[in-house]
Design a protein around this nucleic acid. Structure first.
Length: 344
DNA sequence: CTACCTTCAGTATCGTACTT
DNA sequence: AAGTACGATACTGAAGGTAG
């Protein structure tokens, strides 16, 4: 086996009698060459079996076209779906992604960020909650966060307050005796807190009996299941026979609860109404399709990348003008009424 | 030991020949 | 004078080599 050396611009230049500058232009600005010469180079590439070398290109111009991502986990279907949507923006913006799954502890995540920076990412999308936006803003690299505390950095979020309000309104329309919201404890500066406040606001404005349950659900099924089971047991004993309208802060957890109910009763009992949040794929694919306050996950992803690309493009200019203050983009939620609230 | 090349495979920048 | 189509060369960051 003879080691065949990589074909380079130099080889192509020698073969075609152009300079390597011209070969470079063929790739980066083909229109600046005559059609005839484009064809000559194109033929030479095939003949010599040239393989593009982006590492060399990165070395020469310093632009990696990498975006770093830190995501908390891939248990919640919202995260896997938004990751899916972010990755698909490659077709539009041509940026590639380096991804870490974080939310372990601050030190670990700082290490991840350093690693990303070492790979010369041009921008970063943060979904994990571990590191404050103040610290992130000090990183001197464009950053966009999605659905987390975002005071000092750009962000794209769902209108969570409206979502919580819509969920409560839907449950109220079905004349539930008690409205229940289940969420994990979140301080007021994280967007998801709006689900709680929107829900509470509606209940108070309409003098409805309601209850907020906050628990830590962890980042996997193993952690979530016992918590949901406990909550369900409590509700069963607290409100027997009453019509319970339950709004859970994610479809993933709503699905866990739905499964527990169906295993117990063989179906979703008439006195249970269930509304999730996210409109992640699981809400459609569940045993009974789950009603949900939909985040427009495709839009969140697209807007986040677009916002980031804008800043990264600005950074590449000779005289970049940084944003004077963070941009916060809000995407409205869309309510999906499915079988867990519209019993047949 | 360390100061100074080379190497890798491209790009940025400026320059040139030629046409309009 | 301006535009088009190309070329020459320094330069990029880090690792490895080498001379002193």
């Amino acid at each position: 086996m003879k080691e065949k050396k990589n074909v380079t611009f130099n080889d192509i230049a020698d073969y075609t009698n152009f300079s390597k500058t011209t070969i470079s232009r063929y790739f980066n600005n083909p229109d600046s060459l005559t059609l005839k010469n484009q064809q000559i180079i194109s033929d030479a590439l095939v003949k010599l079996g040239y393989q593009e070398n982006k590492v060399a290109r990165i070395l020469a111009n310093g632009k990696t076209e990498f975006i770093g991502i830190i995501i908390p986990d891939l248990y919640y279907h919202f995260y896997s779906e938004i990751l899916n949507q972010i990755l698909s923006t490659y077709e539009v913006f041509n940026y590639k992604f380096l991804i870490f799954v974080g939310n372990k502890n601050e030190e670990t995540e700082r290490r991840y960020i350093q690693e990303l920076l070492a790979y010369k990412i041009e921008g970063m999308i943060i979904l994990s909650h571990t590191i404050s936006s103040k610290e992130l803003s000090g990183l001197s690299i464009p950053i966009v966060t999605i659905e987390r505390e975002d005071r000092y950095v750009c962000s794209v979020n769902t209108d969570n307050h409206m979502g919580g309000y819509q969920a409560a309104a839907l449950l109220a329309r079905h004349k539930c005796d008690i409205l229940i919201h289940i969420n994990s404890p979140a301080s007021e500066d994280v967007p998801a807190h709006g689900r709680l406040s929107g829900f509470s606001d509606f209940c108070r404005e309409n003098s409805l009996e309601y209850r907020i349950i906050q628990k830590e659900f962890g980042h996997d099924y193993k952690g979530a299941l016992p918590q949901i089971r406990t909550i369900l047991d409590d509700l069963e004993s607290l409100y027997p026979g009453q019509k319970k309208g339950i709004f859970i802060s994610s479809d993933t957890l709503a699905n866990v609860m739905l499964n527990l109910l169906i295993r117990k009763y063989g179906t979703l009992p008439e006195d249970y109404l269930l509304v999730g949040f996210d409109n992640s794929p699981i809400s459609r694919e569940a045993v009974l399709p789950i009603s949900t306050v939909g985040q427009q996950i495709d839009k969140l992803a697209y807007e986040a990348v677009r916002l980031l690309v804008e800043q990264m493009t600005e950074q590449k200019k000779r005289k970049p003008v940084p944003l004077d203050k963070p941009v916060h983009k809000i995407i409205p939620p869309i309510l999906f009424r499915r079988e867990t609230t519209e019993h047949s």
